[in-house]
């Protein structure tokens, strides 16, 4: 042991770990950006796809609400804002936590074992695996959210500016939690593609319209079981001053999104720890 390593120990294990994690995370983004630069045409096509993906969803909403001006009292302006809230949380999730969705693949290919022996928290190691991630969708989502907020004539006051980052963080945590649960299921059942796909569909379908159009059972499910309604419906209803008769929840319930997200994520993380302890590998 040289003098240098001794002085490092003196800094304290927590800060050393944090510094190492930060360095790893920095490398993660460096490699991501270099990959995007290396495959420039492909990257541009994927960015174009992000535009088409969200553009076609918004265009479909516009066409429908052009022909039918009101959906349970929501017009196109309201729906554009509803979509913007979801899009921003979803884009933030995909930019930061894309790796979590790949866990089933790692488990199936036996690659997950490599992550277990790294001197880092396993979940962090998963998140820090470089992929072809570039914050193009996030930039698009930020721009769209700004435009939608203006278009929907939402009052941008101090409360709005203060609350929106927390609401978005809440939405991101809800999405991360559900993906973490699916990833954990892969420890027991190696093939979870089906569940993953269904969950993705559930999210994109059930966050697009005001949940008042669904039956009571579905609304309960979206509020209390898998709280997708807190990703965008309840916060949007609050900011747009929509009355919702859903379960007599007060209007400000929308601002609970970060707490709901945190609670849901805590449950998911607990499940992940249980799964991690039980994990036996697929026997390669």
């Amino acid at each position: 042991m040289g003098p240098q390593s001794r002085s490092r120990v003196a800094v304290g294990p927590v800060s050393a770990t944090a510094r190492r994690a930060l360095a790893v995370y920095g490398q993660h983004w460096r490699i991501n950006l270099l990959t995007a630069l290396e495959y420039r045409e492909n990257f541009l096509l994927w960015a174009a796809f992000a535009v088409v993906y969200h553009g076609s969803a918004i265009a479909a909403l516009w066409v429908v609400l052009h022909a039918f001006p009101s959906m349970n009292g929501w017009d196109f302006r309201d729906m554009a804002f509803l979509y913007g809230l979801w899009m921003l949380a979803h884009a933030l999730h995909d930019t930061l936590f894309f790796g979590v969705g790949s866990v089933p693949e790692y488990v199936r290919d036996g690659e997950f074992d490599r992550l277990l022996i790294r001197p880092l928290d396993t979940l962090f190691a998963v998140i820090a695996i470089p992929g072809q991630v570039f914050p193009d969708e996030l930039i698009l989502a930020l721009a769209y959210f700004g435009a939608a907020t203006w278009y929907a004539q939402v009052r941008v006051d101090a409360l709005f500016v203060l609350c929106v980052p927390f609401v978005i963080a809440g939405g991101t945590m809800i999405e991360l939690a559900i993906n973490l649960i699916v990833a954990t299921i892969a420890f027991w059942f190696v093939r979870v593609d089906a569940i993953r796909w269904i969950v993705l569909q559930l999210e994109s379908e059930f966050t697009r319209y005001p949940i008042g159009i669904y039956s009571r059972g579905v609304r309960l499910f979206l509020t209390f079981v898998i709280p997708f309604a807190f990703m965008n419906y309840f916060p949007a209803a609050y900011f747009l001053h929509k009355s919702h008769s859903t379960f007599a929840l007060p209007a400000a319930a929308g601002l609970l999104a970060p707490l709901i997200g945190l609670a849901f994520l805590a449950v998911a993380y607990g499940f992940w720890r249980v799964g991690l302890n039980r994990y036996q590998g697929v026997g390669h």
Binding site: F68, N72, Q201, Y209
Partner: peptide
């Protein structure tokens, strides 16, 4: 197969609710 059928049923349900809500008020 299960995924296709599951996501199909989900989308049929959502479409029913969406169009029903739209026709109810317009």
């Amino acid at each position: 197969v299960f995924t296709s059928i599951g996501s199909f049923a989900l989308r049929v349900y959502v479409l029913r609710m969406v169009w029903t809500a739209l026709y109810a008020r317009n």
